[in-house]
Design a protein around this nucleic acid. Sequence first.
DNA 1: ACCTGAACACCGTTCAAGT
DNA 2: ACCTGAACACCGTTCAAGT
Lengths: 228, 228
Amino acid sequence: MHASRTCGTRTPPASEGLSRRRAGRPFAAILDKTRITSAALEIIGRKGYDGLTMAGLAKQLEVAPSALYNHVTAKRDVLQLAEDHLISMVDVSLFGRAPWEEAARIWAWSYRDVFAQHTSLIPVIAVLPVTNAPQTLEMYETVTRAFAAAGFPQNLIVSSIVAFESFIFGSAYDVTAPDDIFEAGSTVDSTPHFRAALKAGRVNERPADTAFELGLEALIAALARSLC
Amino acid sequence: MHASRTCGTRTPPASEGLSRRRAGRPFAAILDKTRITSAALEIIGRKGYDGLTMAGLAKQLEVAPSALYNHVTAKRDVLQLAEDHLISMVDVSLFGRAPWEEAARIWAWSYRDVFAQHTSLIPVIAVLPVTNAPQTLEMYETVTRAFAAAGFPQNLIVSSIVAFESFIFGSAYDVTAPDDIFEAGSTVDSTPHFRAALKAGRVNERPADTAFELGLEALIAALARSLC
DNA sequence: ACCTGAACACCGTTCAAGT
DNA sequence: ACCTGAACACCGTTCAAGT
């Protein structure tokens, strides 16, 4: 992966011209979607979503920015490629091998954790047609099969998945919230009830986890009822 | 509101120089946060979040772009002002006047509807310290008081509100998803279970509403149990 | 078919200068 | 105190030209 950094001691000769391999044939393709995706993920991991620019991506790939547009039609495409790769990191391994509740629990937690580190992609996935996202489609297939096998009524499966996902995406944002997000800060306290509840609820040093568990277990428990 | 459009037939004299009122005193302030907020909301409503630029905002206010920076430190501030105004449109009127379940239901639906029209502000609110958002703080106070009055254990209130909000924000995105988001489109169908479930679940022409109701009622039902 | 180089039409933000 | 005008350091994207 990303061979351009720290690969041995190779120091690219700055003034020797292009060092790119060229076959005898007219052209050796330099770019493809796979290389673009992994370079994009590398940059996002290192500098965040705001640090991902088409110019920076091109630089990482040692290519002119305009060259990218031979493989993607817009920056949005790059984000969609990254998103689909991210989905493959979600843990669906327990579906079909453990009770439905337990498999859904592991799936939801890992789904949230993956996107908590990439909240900028949430607006992308939320509107992304799965047509262009094979990994995403595969996840839906796996989850659907498990829900059906667990005894869910056929007509409730997609709605249930969407409900889970909505909660997961919203909760992913919550993970990234600053610790002092609820600090009222005013000298005069016009929100005594809220402040008291805030104090009483601070039992965990990871409040986002407490809220996620509460909501997730509520969803699982209520949906499990439509099984029998 | 926004007096600069269609106010009578006033045609501003283009070549007569500044027509801005100036008192005898050194200066008449032209900008303030209120004017900036309402102008921003007007632009967002007309052209969406992507259409909101500092230059466009300045133009709407008949001012140089740099003038804005006397009142806000960055564009983020403008978005936070808009967000706080949006919160005041959420319906909290039933809290304290109706059973907890019913009040929470109305609150959640209106909260989702408001942000479904402004999904671009979700990343803003999710990380916005309430210190700078008086309306948001007021909503939390109202909701907290009602939850406490309904008999919620003090230490669960904030987590419950956060769980609701997470589900609401995620669901707001879902409203904006294109209708064909789940169209697999491939000739060979590698996702038969998912496709079948999709077909069976399409009972409503507003699938986002079906999923939201399912999840919301699950949350309400499960949380109501911690009351008694 | 695929890449380069130059250009276009924007962005948000800063800052000296004015009043 | 608050505004203007000019400038800065970027953006994403297009397109004629090369090979």
